[in-house]
Amino acid sequence: MAKKVVATLKTKDNGKAFAKVIRAVKSPKTGAYTFKEEMVPVDDVQNALKA
């Protein structure tokens, strides 16, 4: 059974201001996909996905 991950990234000033961005990146050497995770501010999610 899968576990639900519960993480709190809120502070009193900003509430839920961060989002977790997970990207699949293909390795040029092996062709296998790996996943890169990063925490970005909600306002910059679209910029992070374009990069």
Rank of each mutant, 00 (worst) to 15 (best):
M1H: 12
M1A: 12
A2H: 12
K3P: 08
K3E: 15
K4F: 13
K4P: 01
K4T: 12
K4Y: 11
V5P: 01
V5T: 14
V5N: 11
V6K: 09
A7P: 01
A7M: 14
A7D: 14
A7E: 15
A7N: 12
A7Q: 14
T8V: 08
T8P: 00
T8M: 02
L9Q: 07
L9A: 02
K10P: 00
K10F: 10
T11W: 06
T11G: 11
K12H: 07
K12P: 01
D13P: 00
D13F: 06
N14F: 12
G15E: 12
K16P: 07
K16T: 13
K16N: 15
F18A: 00
F18R: 00
F18E: 01
A19T: 09
A19V: 12
A19C: 07
A19M: 10
K20N: 06
V21T: 02
V21D: 02
V21G: 01
I22H: 01
I22E: 10
R23S: 05
R23L: 10
A24C: 02
A24L: 08
V25D: 04
K26A: 03
K26L: 07
K26R: 08
S27N: 15
S27D: 15
P28L: 06
P28G: 06
K29Q: 11
K29L: 13
K29H: 08
K29G: 04
T30E: 14
G31W: 13
A32L: 03
T34S: 14
T34D: 10
T34Q: 11
F35D: 00
K36G: 03
K36Q: 15
K36R: 14
E37A: 07
E38A: 03
E38H: 01
E38N: 01
M39L: 15
M39V: 09
V40A: 03
V40R: 03
P41I: 07
V42G: 01
D43P: 00
D44M: 12
D44Q: 14
D44G: 00
D44C: 06
D44Y: 11
Q46S: 14
N47K: 15
N47G: 05
N47T: 13
N47A: 15
N47D: 15
A48C: 10
A48V: 14
K50W: 04
K50Y: 05
A51L: 05
A51W: 02
A51C: 00
A51F: 04
A51D: 07
